[in-house]
Computed example of a mutant assay.
Amino acid sequence: MASESGRIDSLDALRGFAIFGILLINIQVFSGWGFVASETRQALAWSEWDEPIATWLDILVRAKFYSLFSLLFGYSFMMLAERVQHGPVRYHLKRMLGLLVIGTAHSLLFSPWDILMLYGAMGFFLGAFLSVRASILAACGVALLMITGVALWFAPRLGLADLGGSLSLRLLQENVPALSGGSYPEVVEANAYLSVSVFLDRIEHLRPLRVMAMFLFGAAAARLHLAERDSGHVRLLVAVALAGLVLGTALAMAEVKLTEDTLTSEMVKLVGEVGAPPMLAMGYGAILLLWWRGNGLLTRAVRSALAPTGRMALTNYILQSAICICVFYGMWGDRFASLSLAALMLFSGMFFVGQMIFSAVWLRIFTQGPLEWLWRWQIKRKRPRLLR
């Protein structure tokens, strides 16, 4: 369903849903919970719930919502390219340059676990796929995932698996303490080193190839207009939902639960590592798009509640980082490593409800989020209208 502004409410709602899943994972590093020993975790209130929560987060959420966010990025790329009449490639390159600048600032000032720089860098390659059919886009995405799996399988056997791993770990160990007790300038300096650590880790695990694969899947979905209510393709969405949710969950559970050190278990875990995130991401997207094609009271309520958050996805993504470091880092809120995972999930739920309310109120007054407005200004080189 498209709004008066031409936006697709279901697509915006799906983007808001992805923002919530990203928060559930990122809160673990912002809060410090992901860095402390198990003995310290066990002393925290409600920690008896942490193990099952962590397991299900690993199965259903970790890497899956970033994959969904990447899928939506590819969808938006193709949708915007079809709307831009003159110079769509140049327009896209300007968008990616702006995203790189925003991502770099976000990484240094707030979160070294930023994803926007990677999106901006890999997004430059999307311009080559403007005229490609949906089937070819999907085939290229599958090929990239297969290449990723083969490379990850042979890398340790060729002695290439840990080229930057030791440096990445050392940078992490040396700079995380600044987050719990350093001043803000010390945090910014630590973020610079941690950004290098994150970069090395992502290269080691071939994140750029996985992100590009999801971009291509999203672009293929946009070619078919799957987010639009009247586009048809119901059978395709049902098939993707069933295959993605059932097979994706099975692979994710195998990856998390298998502990045997055998050749077969290693292969299954690798397939789960590479295949489960895109399959579950597509499964989540397909089932929600099917639901939001309806017009029932609950359907409209959920879609309408999530859509404003998704329309301001860039602002809300960076706002999560800004608020979390104010709450948890030692320089301000000083709550670093003081909450259990169960408490963090409760905090995340309340925080996201606040973001939904904030987004809805903001968009009643303004045409778009503040960072979206600045980004559009950079692209068009002309200040767009902000007040309604």
Rank of each mutant, 00 (worst) to 15 (best):
S340E: 10
H233I: 07
I22N: 01
I102Y: 00
G296A: 07
V238E: 09
R235P: 02
V198Q: 11
A213D: 02
Y119D: 12
I325F: 01
F366P: 03
M78C: 08
H225A: 13
A342M: 15
R170L: 04
V327M: 00
A37C: 02
R7T: 08
F217E: 05
V327I: 11
R90H: 05
A178F: 10
A239N: 08
G149M: 13
A250N: 09
S38K: 02
P177I: 07
R383V: 10
T55E: 09
Y184R: 12
N26M: 10
W46G: 00
A134I: 13
I365N: 00
L118Q: 06
M96D: 14
V36C: 00
A43D: 05
L290D: 15
V89E: 15
G120P: 08
C140I: 10
A54W: 03
L226Y: 03
V29Y: 01
I357V: 12
A281R: 05
P208C: 07
L100V: 15
L160A: 06
W49A: 13
I379K: 04
R157K: 14
M356Y: 06
P52F: 14
H233Q: 06
Y193K: 04
L60A: 07
L100C: 14
L346I: 15
V196G: 03
G159P: 14
I25R: 11
R210S: 14
M279E: 09
S67T: 12
L179W: 11
W332F: 15
G310Y: 10
V327D: 02
A313V: 10
V327W: 09
L44H: 09
S180I: 09
L144R: 14
T315N: 07
W46E: 01
D12M: 07
A305I: 04
S168R: 15
L194I: 04
D58C: 03
W33A: 02
A254M: 09
T367Q: 13
D9Q: 13
R223L: 06
L11N: 08
W113G: 09
G275D: 07
I102H: 02
V61G: 00
L194D: 02
P185C: 14
G296S: 11
P277I: 02
S5A: 12
